[in-house]
Design a protein around this nucleic acid. Structure first.
Lengths: 195, 195
DNA sequence: AACGCCACTTGACCTGGATCAAGTGGCGGA
DNA sequence: TCCGCCACTTGATCCAGGTCAAGTGGCGTT
């Protein structure tokens, strides 16, 4: 085992405990990959058949609407998994792009290899169950925020939840994440400053 | 075993197979409960410590914003699970109400009993992993819909996904689910009719 | 038959946020 | 040092959808 797998093993260890042999088997299923800034992990139209665990860097998933506007669905940094679950779970062509926001290193786990993993080490079912339950909870919260809060308060929420990484994102990206245009977002910040 | 557990056993059987003893143990953890129309399964402020599997009837989860407007987060009918995952997973007071839309029968599984279930029949980890992955995928889709589609198209999506149960809901509720006011929704339907 | 209730409709007006186009300003490259 | 690019700002105008208040109409009760 090289040391490159330490971050993911630590992440797994927070939920379940594994023998050395199991760790080793798990790591053998992963593939390390580097992405340069703006490189795609997934393109609209293709089927998402893998999950990516971010070792370093930063990644976003987004869709382009009819007018070509970008809407960011998720942001992932080190120690997070990212995938298009819609496509992964239902085996349908993805509507999303997943793209590196900065130079990024990730560990890839294909759908098939994940099945192998579940078959050999059923404990991983628990790991992914817990992870998905959390992701689902966060996703539900995002829906209620969008439905019930004005843009300025959605921005507050964003700052509360992502302040550690807010610096890595341009205003345009943050605007897209909270669901407003860059122009409106700029005005919003201005009105915040003198108040 | 009474026959009241058939629907949930069939639902489980779609994902995992169980021995008779396991089925019996699983059912022993469930509690059946009836709710009349407008009765609450969960109130804002309390901690959600159970999941509900709907046997018959119909249930909605929603939040009330500062102005008292209702925003429906999810709709659940027979054969679906419902809970406030935000509250369940992070042990925080719920911001949601969960309420019966019609007379409803549900099977309740508390958080603690679910843990017991996982400890005794680890296979249930897989069942809940699969369920949660689907729920998460649907939830992500809902976010992209809200971010990228105008109200009329969100209504189309609603009809596509829930047409079997659309009849059970008043216009006000549908309006709330797609995220518009009843007044605007009424106008939207009108303009749809002569076109 | 008359009443009350509740869902829905409709009109007049308002507003958060979008659109489009013209700046400004900082910073990296040759 | 100058240029070009790119992120951000700002102004003018527009529009989807909200708000509020006054109907309409169906249906269950007495």
């Amino acid at each position: 085992m090289t040391t490159g797998y330490e971050p993911i093993l630590q992440n797994v260890a927070k939920q379940i405990s594994l023998s050395e042999a199991e760790k080793s088997f798990f790591c053998s299923l992963l593939q390390e990959r580097q992405y340069h800034k703006k490189e795609y992990l997934l393109r609209e139209g293709s089927i998402c058949n893998q999950l990516a665990f971010i070792i370093s860097g930063c990644v976003k998933s987004y869709l382009l609407d009819q007018k070509g506007n970008e809407h960011i669905l998720t942001i992932a940094i080190a120690d997070w998994w990212i995938a298009d679950y819609q496509s992964l779970v239902f085996d349908t062509p993805s509507e999303l792009f997943i793209e590196a926001v900065e130079p990024t290193t990730a560990l890839l786990l294909t759908k098939e290899k994940r099945e192998t993993l579940f078959a050999r080490i059923p404990h991983f079912e628990q790991y992914f169950r817990i992870l998905t339950e959390r992701a689902f909870a966060v996703s539900q919260q995002r829906i209620t925020d969008i439905l019930s809060l004005p843009a300025a308060e959605r921005y507050e929420q964003f700052l509360r939840r992502y302040h550690r990484i807010a610096g890595a994102f341009s205003q345009q990206q943050i605007a897209s994440f909270i669901g407003v245009t860059p122009a409106f977002f700029s005005r919003m910040l201005k009105s915040k400053r003198h108040s």
